[in-house]
């Protein structure tokens, strides 16, 4: 199939998903309510970490929860209603199909995150914010999250079957990746465990967003962030693809 018809199909599938699944409760809760609730907590909370760090936390959580949830909800819902057969039967490659699903996650989570940020930033000031870098970091973080959600849901028949294990992993990742406080502080009493943070891809999202907002302080680390996120995205798509194919046997 030529590239442009594949591209068209990606958009066709994403547009249908937007129409069909954005208004489902998990999408609304994790994709919209949660980021804004975090934002509220941010305004009301008593700072135990610096303000710049809290902005980074809210941003990364918004990308992570929005992207993973939408991507993870759509496939099980389609399986449940049997409509997934429609997509499998159509002359669309499975790669195209999965990309369409993640585009639906992207067009949800990316604008919501930008919106949350554009509300917060005027209150906090802009530090050394690099807009281009920030947009790229957020985009990568959202794409990573979508791939993560897809990898989890690729063979699931039920939303609940996905949400429980995924929430467990999501919260662990958030806790150990320095979303709420810098990793140096999390591992203050156990510095030898700090390697855990570097095993979790979210750490690199956090760092990339952080450097985009407060200014580049470690260019090598920034390059590492992007490289690792892209590698993770490719790996997660591969896992999603394999798991998806396996449902046909």
């Amino acid at each position: 199939m030529s590239i442009d018809t594949s591209l068209k199909k990606i958009f066709v599938i994403a547009a249908k998903d937007i129409k069909t699944y954005y208004s489902k409760p998990p999408s609304l809760f994790y994709g919209i309510v949660l980021p804004f609730a975090l934002f509220g907590a941010f305004l009301a909370g008593r700072p135990c970490v610096t303000e710049d760090y809290r902005v980074v936390g809210v941003t990364v959580l918004s990308t992570f929860f929005g992207g993973t949830t939408i991507a993870a909800v759509i496939l099980p819902l389609e399986r449940r209603s049997g409509t997934i057969d429609r997509l499998i039967l159509a002359p669309v490659s499975f790669k195209t199909l999965l990309l369409g699903k993640s585009l639906a996650g992207f067009t949800f989570s990316f604008p919501v995150t930008l919106l949350v940020l554009s509300i917060i930033l005027p209150f906090t000031g802009f530090w050394n914010l690099n807009p281009l870098l920030l947009v790229v970091s957020i985009a990568l973080s959202v794409i990573f999250s979508c791939a993560f959600g897809l990898a989890f849901s690729a063979s699931a028949n039920d939303v609940a079957d996905v949400m429980w294990p995924m929430n467990f992993v999501r919260f662990l990742m958030i806790f150990f990746s320095g979303v709420f406080m810098p990793i140096d502080e999390i591992y203050l009493y156990m510095p030898s465990l700090k390697f855990i943070a570097y095993l979790l891809p979210l750490t690199y999202s956090v760092d990339a967003v952080y450097q985009s907002i407060v200014g580049i302080n470690d260019i090598m680390m920034l390059i590492a962030d992007f490289t690792i996120l892209i590698a993770m995205i490719i790996l997660l798509y591969y896992i999603a693809y394999r798991r998806f194919i396996k449902t046909l046997t």
């Binding site: 249908k16 699944y21 049997g82 409509t83 057969d85 002359p91 669309v92």
Partner: peptide
Amino acid sequence: GVVPEVSNIYVEMTAWENLIFAAELYD
């Protein structure tokens, strides 16, 4: 063309939208 055992339409969409989506999937 395949009609599965269990009707599988997108109930969130209208009949028209369902058919347009099917047409788009098949170019």
